[in-house]
Design a protein around this nucleic acid. Structure first.
Lengths: 219, 219
DNA sequence: TTTATTATTTAGATTTGTCTAAATAATATT
DNA sequence: AATATTATTTAGACAAATCTAAATAATAAA
């Protein structure tokens, strides 16, 4: 089946919001796709017609197994292009998402399989997320949490959820990037700020807002 | 200015049909884009509004200098991706066009400039066509003609105009590919067939139809 | 130069994906 | 349980890109 770019984006977002098997609500999907709930309802009817989702009025959305297969293909394409951009074209991790967002819609099984070979068939992308193989199989996602909720002491940065230039500039100034290892020194209850220490750097204190946008996993 | 994919395809095709400065007719453009003349008229009004073309009813279409700049950017993207597909992913010359046709619509100056660097800033693409630089400057197109009209004796294959699988299979069987050098032995007036010889192969005779679809330049 | 042919444009419709505003359903609050 | 709030859907509209059929302009042929 051949999906439009819009349809692909819906399928991908539904997959993302499902996180396993949760039902996705109209509003959540609208928010994720930066569109209006009415548009989501319209598209839900179309995707149901194409048997990519299960959908009943007011009951929310889940992917069918066919929809899940489509989603995994799109995610595969996205993550392989991200690898390409970082490994071959030396882009930094904060620049790649929106480019991969466009490249992922070039549908060619052959292109993707050759790209994968060319990259050495990587199994995780530059954000640390697993890459589905051609059959849609992939490793379990790493158990990442936002920095403000992490309970381990020694952590590694896996992603940044807010791509605003203000945040990225801040992280740059503090030498925090993808793969950076850090140690949590203290939580300050008063404003939920967190004191952290990077190797070869003095300890710094970051606000709750910043901590919420830094994703980490135990090292 | 930000063009839609449809608009980019129009601009690119107008550039191609102009071949310098010729006026492009509605019908010719419709044929090139595999669409209907009425659709071309509609789009012509839009592109005129955006100052990318000069257009007066019944008088045909030409690009403005702004339109030409856009066209050269699109062609640059297209040809760089073709280089990537052949040089890095080992695609053959007959497979790359339609993939590049999609990849060319990812608009990112930075992506293209890095891709160009990565490829060693090539100045001709796998079909032998020149690649515009970031400023839109490019070498003169090679003087290619179809094999049936070539007057030189020793030639090199630069392109195939008909991408049908039947023709490609034929060329494959005869070991004719991009860059293949050949020598014209004889023209047979009766049916306009041509006898040619490839190095390390016995001479073969090809029909006028085949010869018309093989582009060559003197070696 | 009148007529026939071909090229182009217009008018009106269609599809896809979106929107706003209003209606309805589901859920939460009192 | 009645009411308020929030979530979702429907109805109707819109923009982009296309189409068909009919009208008009340009060109070729008689």
């Amino acid at each position: 089946m051949n999906l439009s770019i819009a349809e692909e984006n819906y399928v991908k977002s539904i997959y993302k919001l499902q996180e396993g098997d949760a039902v996705v609500t109209t509003n959540a999907l609208a928010y994720e796709l930066e569109t209006k709930p009415a548009s989501v309802t319209d598209m839900a009817k179309k995707l149901k017609e194409k048997k990519l989702i299960d959908y009943e009025k007011y009951k929310g959305i889940t992917l069918t197994s066919e929809g899940r297969t489509m989603a995994l293909q799109i995610i595969r394409r996205h993550r392989l292009w991200e690898c390409f951009l970082v490994d071959k074209l030396a882009f930094s991790w904060e620049e790649i998402h929106e480019l991969a967002e466009e490249l992922e819609h070039v549908r060619s099984e052959k292109l993707i399989s050759r790209l994968s070979d060319y990259l050495g068939n990587p199994v995780i992308d530059p954000h640390g997320d697993p890459i589905p193989d051609a059959q849609g199989k992939m490793a379990k996602p790493r158990p990442q949490t936002s920095l403000d909720q992490a309970n381990a002491r020694r952590l590694v940065v896996t992603a940044v959820t807010d791509q605003s230039t203000a945040l990225l500039a801040f992280l740059n100034a503090k030498n925090i990037k993808l793969g950076t290892q850090l140690e949590v020194i203290a939580h300050y209850e008063y404003d939920n700020s967190i004191e952290i220490k990077l190797k070869q750097h003095p300890a710094i204190t970051i606000s709750e807002l910043v901590a919420k946008n830094i994703m980490v996993r135990p090292v």
